[in-house]
């Protein structure tokens, strides 16, 4: 039993990790917490739902459509809501992000109503048995897809020119501009990637827990935020490891402690991280050298 609890914890954690990557990249590069990020998952879920269930499209149409749509949503949110606040106080940006989050939730409420809809899994892989444990196909796909995405993302950031620009902007925006890097474009690209990942996370999550409602993105968004903080906000490996750890802890505490308490336990991790090591596992404190 333990193995299957553990595996489904890893797969839940992989979803958190995909969401946490968006949080952490946007934080690292735009220096803001995009609290609307969780709701992009919900948007992704609804788009996939509409394309596959309502319009009867194939799984691939739903998946690609959802990723493209969310990428655009991310770019538009950044342009409309955050870009005008580039030199505003951090608090103003944070409040705006919360406003965007409410806006997306209420827009979904308006379009789809308050009832949750049944989502049909877009993954058609049968249950797999490992020894005595049985593992749903969704779990395997989620873990596999997440690993591939993380490898791809690391390659993109460390090998491509746009990736180098992202690293430069995240370290010193002014110096990056002096290199000829278009900072606005780089921030826009970051939002695009983060939102695309959120769409994938949304599809994977709705395939495993087949319900979608206007508030579907809220809790996973917060958990992923905790994962990002736990791993060290701004750090990509931190977001991945943080996500997986939070997922495992949540699932194991559901199984062995109490399913009602599992959320509380996750939040205790946030509090402990902030008290004991606010920079998280991989957070860096930069030393200035003159």
């Amino acid at each position: 039993m333990f193995i299957s609890y553990l595996l489904s914890g890893v797969s839940l954690g992989a979803i958190y990790a995909l969401i946490a990557l968006g949080y952490t990249m946007v934080y690292g590069i735009a220096k803001m917490l995009n609290f609307a990020h969780g709701d992009v998952i919900m948007v992704g879920g609804y788009v996939a739902f509409t394309l596959s269930v309502t319009l009867g499209g194939s799984a691939w149409v739903a998946i690609i459509g959802s990723i493209v749509f969310c990428t655009l949503v991310g770019i538009v949110i950044e342009k409309v809501a955050y870009k005008p606040l580039r030199s505003a106080s951090k608090l103003a940006v944070l409040i705006t992000a919360i406003g965007v989050s409410y806006f997306l939730q209420n827009l979904a409420l308006l379009i789809f109503g308050s009832n949750s809809r049944n989502f049909q899994s877009l993954v058609s892989i049968p249950v797999i048995s490992i020894g005595q444990a049985t593992v749903p196909g969704e779990t395997i796909v989620t873990i596999g897809v997440s690993i591939l995405i993380v490898i791809g993302l690391m390659l993109f950031i460390n090998k491509s020119k746009s990736g180098a620009a992202m690293l430069a902007v995240s370290e010193d925006r002014g110096a990056a501009e002096l290199m000829g890097i278009n900072v606005n474009k780089t921030i826009s690209l970051t939002f695009a990637i983060g939102s695309g990942l959120a769409a994938i996370a949304g599809i994977l999550m709705c395939s495993q827990y087949p319900m979608i409602g206007p508030y579907t993105g809220q809790m996973p968004g917060i958990k992923a935020f905790i994962a990002a903080v736990f791993g060290g906000i701004g750090s990509i490996p931190g977001a991945m490891i943080g996500g997986v750890v939070i997922g495992i802890i949540e699932n194991l505490s559901k199984a062995y402690i109490s399913s009602q308490l599992s959320d509380a336990i996750t939040f205790v991790i946030l509090i402990l991280t902030l008290v004991i090591k606010p920079t998280g596992l991989f957070g860096k404190k930069l030393k200035e050298k003159v």
């Binding site: 180098a164 370290e171 002014g174 003159v290």
Partner: peptide, 20 residues
């Protein structure tokens, strides 16, 4: 204050100089 990219390698810093 130089403002080199502290976390990147020397070569990456130089390549960023040629970004445009």
């Amino acid at each position: 204050g130089r403002r080199v990219f502290q976390q990147l390698t020397v070569q990456k810093n130089l390549m960023l100089g040629a970004y445009s």
